[in-house]
Design a protein around this nucleic acid. Structure first.
Lengths: 354, 354
DNA sequence: CTTAGCACTCTCGACGTAAGAGTGCTAGCA
DNA sequence: TGCTAGCACTCTTACGTCGAGAGTGCTAAG
């Protein structure tokens, strides 16, 4: 979109004023800041309205940005936000999560984002390489109790306690280990079918009826690991924003976010970009047409990558939200690399301002 | 509270009518149902208002029950609700959860309750016996990688992958196992202090610097297991109820529920009772003074017990909510006992009606 | 003790009005 | 030609009035 520099400055003032006050902004409100008379600004506003960058709730109200208006602001005018020292300190402190429990780490990251931005946040993780069992181990606790330990190809370990109906013979345990390690390791979930299982059952001469349980445990462990996980935090924050004071709007959005299938369908940043921003009508889901989504990608090594996002009104503090998300997403990566004391510091590298 | 049988019937009609319509109920509305003229009912209503069982939003409106009015309804008048066949089937189906992951089972139960009742639900679990490590095992994956497997006294198993800076000597692993099993088993978290750890470090002659990691892993595993867990599901349901159409009320309650410390402080049923109901002002927390809480206790064996509760407006369908909670709480117990096809069927055992 | 009747009170929605905000347009000025 | 002061116009919002409707409390009669 090619518009004059002056129009851009006016648009910028309108967007920032509107983000702050949540009220349609009139020509007078920004005339001083720009050193132009309100009449001049009115003329420009009228043109921008017909260009589709601004709209009026009604004839005698000020202007508010359209999705397109926000889009231009985000692409060309937004000055990248600088997190305060105390904010980065808070993030750094919170990020020192115990990473053993992947789920918890991810949901905590979501919570952190939500608290920081005061918008509902979501976090999701997916494993993008097929996972296999790398190794089976069996620990005999007592004659009728067995612990099955699986080491998976992504370096996670799963275990399960199993009870037997009759005392276990030691030789059987060795055979069980040999057969499972020979047949099931490096075998993706999809190939673990019933014929494989029954052939293993024969090979071990299983009189305890336990091979099938072990196999199904392995299958479940793999599918659990490969399954996507979604967490939503701070959904109630949307009630703080005037655009959701209407309970039906709030309810619709909260309902949408409480279904994890919907969360999985939220947008994904392009590979080359840091943060993706979808504004209002740019969203495909009907329920999000008057909300915006800001999302960042993070990696956790071991083939795990995921998204960290924020949902809020189109009148969102995009600069701050994008900065926070980007910082936290990078921080998660750094955490895994063990450099938790060297978190990146976001600067003005993306400034489009003078 | 000693009031005439007729007053009770009137109170019952008022409560049930109000639960259904959410509008103050006038004398005319219930006169036919009881075979009394509206004037008579008005007289009774006036007395019950001065007794504190009813109140009027304003002079010319109908009556609504006070907390005390609901209390009498719940204690003496409520007819225990019969779940429909399809409801019990839905519950039974949903309850066949994979119980391996305690957390998931509990949060799923909360979700189920919320879906069934259309109120926000919470689920929490606590281990009420001290947990210890019953057994340490070490699996060597490769010279520099080790899996530590802990079997805890409550029959859960925890594991952790550890990387070493130098290749592992086999004899060391055996010694490690011997020392840990001798010193740390049956030892509650509180006694695993630094002096014990350093004495173990000496005993193993640990040149890998790994004893401390194992010990701290064990400590964390115990504290994680003993820690209470809280889940809240379906918080957005409150927006469906007219008493929370005011966004500030809704926000206050949702905020309250999003803090897990608050959830832990919610009421606990007495030992002899099935379900505990706290109505409006009976709640201690300021944020719940105009809401009600219904809570049931469940047990999961292995010393795990927890609460399953519902939060909603005082105008709540107590009968149905109590029935659902009680059914599900019993169902969870039955599940663990392996009787998943013999879930209890709730009847009218608590009817106080004719 | 119950109930029909009635006057009274209070809420709620409709309506009209005035104030205020912001616009678009016109005309004058650099 | 571009900027701006001024003004008439439009639309929202708040406010007050008014009448309808709902429900009550009281009284008096059965």
């Amino acid at each position: 979109m090619n518009i004059s520099e002056r129009k851009k400055q006016i648009l910028k003032s309108i967007v920032e004023n509107y983000i702050e006050t949540a009220e349609p902004v009139g020509s007078r409100a920004i005339s001083e800041g720009l050193g132009l008379s309100s009449a001049t600004i009115r003329n420009e506003m009228a043109e921008m309205t017909s260009l589709g960058l601004l709209e009026q709730p009604h004839t005698s109200a000020g202007r508010i940005p359209t999705s397109l208006g926000y889009r231009i602001y985000v692409n060309e005018l937004m000055r990248s936000h600088m997190l305060t020292i105390s904010e980065t300190e808070e993030i750094n402190k919170s990020l020192k999560i115990r990473m053993e429990q992947l789920d918890k780490a991810i949901s905590d990251a979501g919570r952190l984002v939500s608290e920081l931005t005061n918008y509902p946040a979501y976090a999701l993780a997916a494993v993008n390489t097929p996972v296999t069992v790398r190794r089976f181990d069996f620990i005999q606790v007592d004659p009728r109790t067995l612990i099955v330990v699986l080491m998976l190809s992504n370096s996670t370990v799963k275990n399960r306690l199993m009870n037997l109906t009759r005392p276990l013979d030691e030789g059987f345990l060795l055979k069980l280990g040999a057969v499972f390690n020979a047949n099931f390791t490096n075998c993706p979930e999809s190939e673990m079918d019933s014929t494989l299982i029954s052939s293993v059952e024969r090979a071990t001469g299983d009189i305890y009826g336990i091979s099938a349980s072990i196999a199904s445990f392995a299958i479940r462990a793999l599918s659990e690991t490969e399954n996507k996980k979604a967490f939503v935090a701070g959904a109630s924050h949307i009630l703080e924003h005037p655009e959701y004071r209407d309970w039906e709007k709030a309810h619709r959005l909260m309902n949408y976010l409480s279904e994890s299938e919907n969360v999985f369908r939220l947008p994904v940043p392009e590979d080359n970009s840091d943060v993706k921003i979808l504004i209002g009508s740019e969203n495909v889901a009907e329920e999000l047409k008057d909300s915006s989504v800001v999302v960042a990608k993070y990696e956790l090594g071991a083939g795990v990558e995921g998204l960290l996002g924020v949902v809020g009104p189109t009148r969102m503090d995009y600069a701050k939200v994008a900065a926070s998300l980007s910082y936290i997403a990078k921080g998660m990566k750094a955490l895994v690399d063990g450099k938790e004391n060297h978190l990146p510091v976001l600067g003005n590298e993306k400034s489009a301002d003078e």
